[in-house]
């Protein structure tokens, strides 16, 4: 069984920022989501989302894909495998702090 100290080792400062945690939580539940959908779901402005997504992309946690739909360019976001692993590790660390161990 993994002890609480090992689990808190997955705590990730990049992910822990509130909006970034919410972005990762949303992207973890899907294969890919369009930027505007993420923005709508989280209720944040495009500039805030862009800024937070840029940090996650720089960390290698999120990747974006551009696609044209109805003559407009759309940006699709997805968690990378390291991003998914880091997010899960972070959630496990949070649970360990709270005292739940899964």
């Amino acid at each position: 069984m993994t002890d609480a100290h090992d689990l808190t080792g997955g705590f990730d400062m990049t992910i822990h920022a509130p909006n970034r945690l919410r972005i990762c939580a949303l992207l973890e539940a899907v294969a890919e989501a369009e930027f505007s959908v993420v923005q709508e779901q989280l209720g944040v402005s495009a500039s805030v989302l862009s800024k937070q997504v840029a940090v996650l992309i720089e960390a290698g946690y999120v990747k974006q894909r551009k696609a044209v739909r109805d003559t407009r360019q759309r940006v699709w976001l997805q968690l990378t495998e390291p991003g998914r692993a880091a997010y899960r590790g972070h959630v496990a660390a949070l649970r360990a702090i709270v005292g739940e161990q899964h």
Binding site: F11, A59, R95, I97
Partner: peptide, 23 residues
């Protein structure tokens, strides 16, 4: 990824619970 991980986060149980609620 490597530098952002913090093995000893100073986070209270309430703060961690709040973050989990956000998720």
């Amino acid at each position: 990824q490597a530098s952002s991980q913090n093995p000893a986060p100073r986070l209270s149980r309430e703060e961690a619970a709040a973050a989990l609620r956000q998720v």
